[in-house]
């Protein structure tokens, strides 16, 4: 098992941090660095190109942060070792997942432990993104949604979002008169959005309450939400209850 080579990419915006990690990795014959990336864009590209087994990922970076990179590469069989200078993210270690966290500067021993852990759990699905982010000591609601659209990366401010509907394994994000599909569960996205502004009104939809024009009663216990752009969305009974709690 240990002899199986892991193809890895190193993602950090600081040159010295990348060099330090590269130097430390020389001692690990089972890890081959196939690419070094200076930012999130490069990382997303490198993952598509090299299809690595392991990614060393800095959290705070220009353009895209580490979590956004993970969202965009959309692979849950990849092993991830986060590296960050300060545990503002409480950095909970997920047992029996191919995830670990390193606090910079880290020792050679700590790095060896991380590699051991992720290779032992290799191939197992990653924890949900919202679970990993929930380890944050000061969780903050999502301010933008990142979506990969072909080779382009869209960054949608949540304030632009009208509503989000579930389409099988995807969510369909409706914003600024357009819509875009993203591979994510509606429940997973719901947990990362500000619960005071985005309400799950139905099993299949989340609405930005600022876009709701009015709520109409169709039949007994059958409500629909009419948005400002005249879109009609079905409201379930529990959805109606949640909506009433926020709107009053």
């Amino acid at each position: 098992m240990m002899n199986q080579v892991l193809n890895a990419i190193v993602v950090d915006d600081e040159m010295l941090a990348r060099q330090y990690l590269q130097e430390m990795l020389k001692a690990h014959e089972n890890v081959t660095v196939v690419a070094e990336c200076k930012n999130g864009f490069e990382a997303v590209k490198a993952v598509a190109e090299h299809n690595p087994d392991l990614i060393f990922l800095d959290i705070q970076m220009p353009k895209l942060d580490g979590f956004e990179v993970l969202e965009l590469i959309d692979r849950d069989d990849i092993a991830v070792v986060f590296a960050t200078a300060y545990d503002q993210y409480a950095l909970k270690a997920f047992d029996s997942h191919a995830v670990d966290y390193l606090l910079k500067p880290f020792s050679a021993e700590r790095l060896a432990k991380a590699i051991e852990k992720v290779s032992a759990n290799r191939g197992r699905p990653l924890p949900q993104l919202n679970e990993m982010k929930a380890t944050d000591t000061k969780p903050e609601a999502l301010t933008r949604i990142v979506v990969k659209d072909g080779s382009k990366i869209e960054m949608i401010p949540v304030t632009d979002v009208d509503y989000i509907s579930a389409e099988d394994d995807y969510v369909d994000i409706h914003y600024a008169g357009k819509s875009i599909l993203k591979h994510q569960t509606l429940a997973g996205l719901e947990k990362m959005l500000d619960a005071d502004k985005f309400i799950r009104i139905h099993r299949s939809s989340i609405v930005n309450i600022e876009r709701v024009d009015r709520i109409e009663l169709l039949a007994k216990d059958k409500y629909i939400a009419i948005l400002k752009d005249r879109t009609e969305l079905r409201i379930s009974r529990s959805g109606h209850k949640r909506l009433k709690e926020v709107i009053g």
Binding site: E14, L16, A17, Q19, Y20, E23, A85, Y86, L103, K104, P105
Partner: peptide
């Protein structure tokens, strides 16, 4: 502090 220490560790 920790970012600076990391730079030193690399240097």
């Amino acid at each position: 502090l920790f970012n600076s220490l990391n730079s030193i560790a690399a240097l």
